[in-house]
Amino acid sequence: MVSCVAKVYTPEILELFQAEYEKSLNCFIYIHGKVGHVIEYKIHRDRSNERTILFDSATEMVTCISKKFEFMGIQCCHVLKVLDHRNIKFLPPQYILTRWTRDAKFDVVHDICSSSIQVDMCLLY
């Protein structure tokens, strides 16, 4: 999975992603329950740090209680473990934010007065 995102992510984001992927290799996973298409997984590196992850097999959407993707824009080791467990070898496109890619150059942001401003995204990160 790391090799496929290496061509997409910036070097800095790739490094963060790779660290999460390496953590995922040391995680243990088991199915905790299933309702319809949604499978609830429990993942931990040790029993004191268990996380709940939901996987919708109909849409291949993965949600982790840690919300790292929502806060940082890269997937956490828990989600990566589920994807690996499900034999999904490529990071689904909905989990690759454009702002972290090599192709991200400029984006439009809005100031407090809702005026559009073109910003070089590389300068923000």
Score class of each variant (00 low, 15 high):
F90I: 02
Q75D: 08
E12F: 03
C76H: 02
C27D: 08
H85K: 14
A6Q: 15
T52Y: 11
K68W: 04
E60M: 09
E20T: 12
E50G: 03
K7G: 10
K67F: 14
V108C: 08
N26A: 07
S48K: 02
I74E: 05
A19T: 11
F106N: 00
T63A: 06
K89S: 07
Y41K: 01
F106R: 05
Q18M: 13
A104H: 08
L97F: 11
A19P: 01
W100E: 06
L124G: 03
Q118K: 03
Q118S: 07
L91I: 05
A19N: 13
Y95V: 14
Q118A: 13
K68P: 03
E40L: 13
K105Y: 06
I112V: 12
S66E: 10
T98K: 12
R99M: 06
L14G: 12
Y30W: 04
E70D: 09
S48E: 06
L123V: 12
L54F: 13
I88N: 09
H85N: 10
K67C: 11
Y41E: 14
I88E: 03
D46V: 02
C113R: 10
E40P: 06
T63W: 03
K105T: 01
P11S: 10
L25N: 02
S24Y: 08
S57C: 04
A6L: 07
H85P: 02
R51C: 04
I31D: 00
D103A: 09
D84W: 13
K81E: 14
R86E: 12
V79I: 14
I29V: 11
L25I: 14
A58N: 09
A6S: 15
H110I: 01
K81M: 08
Y41N: 05
H110K: 02
S66P: 00
I31N: 02
S116Y: 03
L124I: 15
N26Y: 11
I96P: 01
G36C: 08
R47I: 14
W100P: 00
K34E: 15
R51G: 01
R51F: 15
S57N: 05
K68H: 01
H85R: 13
S57Q: 09
H78F: 11
E60S: 15
V62L: 10
H110Q: 06
R86A: 09
K34P: 02
Q94P: 01
T98M: 04
H32W: 10
S115P: 00
C27V: 05
E60D: 07
L25Y: 08
T59A: 06
D120Q: 11
F106K: 04
V82F: 00
F106Y: 10
K89Y: 15
E22I: 06
I112L: 04
V35K: 05
P11L: 03
H32F: 15
I43Q: 01
V2D: 04
L54W: 07
G36D: 14
R45Q: 01
V79Y: 03
C122V: 08
R86M: 15
L14C: 09
K42R: 12
R86D: 09
C122F: 04
V109L: 06
K68I: 14
K7T: 14
D120A: 12
V62W: 02
F55Q: 02
